[in-house]
């Protein structure tokens, strides 16, 4: 695929609005053979066909508010959560909306941009698009970017399960990627999120993001998964992305369908939290708050 303009280099955002508009049109046309995520469904979402994410061509959102939960350098963040996701994490804290692409209200990029501008004027430091998973709504996300001030600091909060073609469309559009690295092995990814080939795909996305944007990798500690998941994630980051910022979250709670998994019926213990921090320090990871 040839994009109208392939590279909007990092920091060169004068033309971001124009390029975003061009790419949004490309992304919307791609919904006819959707391969935005690595499930590679190839369904025609423009005609209502549904792939694994169950999203058609309409984008909805289930939350839009200013939040202060993220890393210090990003808050206050005007956070817009789009409905639907290409993963099926049983412990998803927003499972009802993330598993349902028809949840919430229709996302109007232009109207939402007005509200986002107001949030910036009222003190928000960043505008953050999240989900669910925003990659499956790439056309609307780019249409939204096209409506925002070129100087707005934009954050793409993702599960890092995007396809190469989606990444190409995202190149230069967001200042910061806040990307999840949820599982330390494919067995846990399959069991907890029903996603195959997880490690290869996420690693590919993270390596790309580290090269093309400012990247922070997030990991939500899960009870009973410190050794199998966090240790694996931490060791890979230390080896392959040693200077990347790491946001280690310990606020897991047994939401949605987590209780299907016996080890996930509680929260992360203090012992597990301490062990996770010990691993991070031992490996020299750059933790952010």
């Amino acid at each position: 695929m040839m994009l109208a303009e392939r590279n909007v280099s990092r920091g060169s955002i004068q033309d971001r609005r124009r390029v975003a508009r061009e790419r949004a049109a490309i992304a919307r046309a791609m919904l006819a053979d959707c391969r935005l995520c690595t499930h590679n469904c190839g369904v025609n979402r423009l005609q209502g066909e549904l792939g694994l994410c169950r999203a058609d061509a309409t984008t909805r959102f289930f939350s839009a508010q200013v939040e202060v939960a993220e890393d210090m350098e990003l808050i206050p963040a005007c956070a817009l959560a789009l409905s639907g996701c290409d993963l099926r994490c049983d412990f998803c804290i927003t499972g009802a909306s993330s598993w349902n692409a028809r949840a919430g209200d229709i996302f109007d990029p232009r109207a939402m941009a007005v509200k986002a501008r107001q949030a910036l004027e009222h003190g928000a430091r960043t505008i953050m698009i999240l989900g669910g998973e925003p990659t499956i709504h790439l056309p609307a996300a780019l249409e939204f970017v096209a409506e925002l001030p070129a100087t707005a600091k934009l954050v793409w909060k993702t599960n890092a399960h995007a396809s190469a073609v989606a990444r190409e469309l995202l190149d230069g559009m967001f200042d910061i990627w806040l990307a999840d690295f949820k599982f330390g092995n494919d067995a846990c990814a399959q069991s907890l999120a029903r996603v195959p080939d997880y490690l290869r795909i996420v690693r590919e996305n993270l390596l790309w993001a580290a090269e093309h944007t400012e990247l922070t990798v997030r990991h939500l500690l899960m009870p009973g998964h410190i050794d199998c998941c966090w240790r694996g994630v931490a060791e890979w980051l230390a080896a392959e992305l040693p200077n990347v910022k790491v946001s280690l979250r310990s606020s897991f709670w047994p939401a949605w369908r987590a209780r299907v998994h016996p080890e996930m019926r509680g929260t992360v213990t203090k012992v597990e939290s301490h062990e996770a921090l010990r691993i991070a320090h031992e490996l020299g990871l750059e933790l952010v708050e």
């Binding site: 202060v68 210090m72 808050i75 206050p76 009222h122 003190g123 928000a124 430091r125």
Partner: peptide, 17 residues
């Protein structure tokens, strides 16, 4: 401190509060 810093971050910004 975790929460305190987040409140401070907002308060140090514009007058949104």
């Amino acid at each position: 401190e975790f929460i305190h810093r987040r409140v401070a971050a907002k308060r140090s910004g514009h007058s949104a509060a």
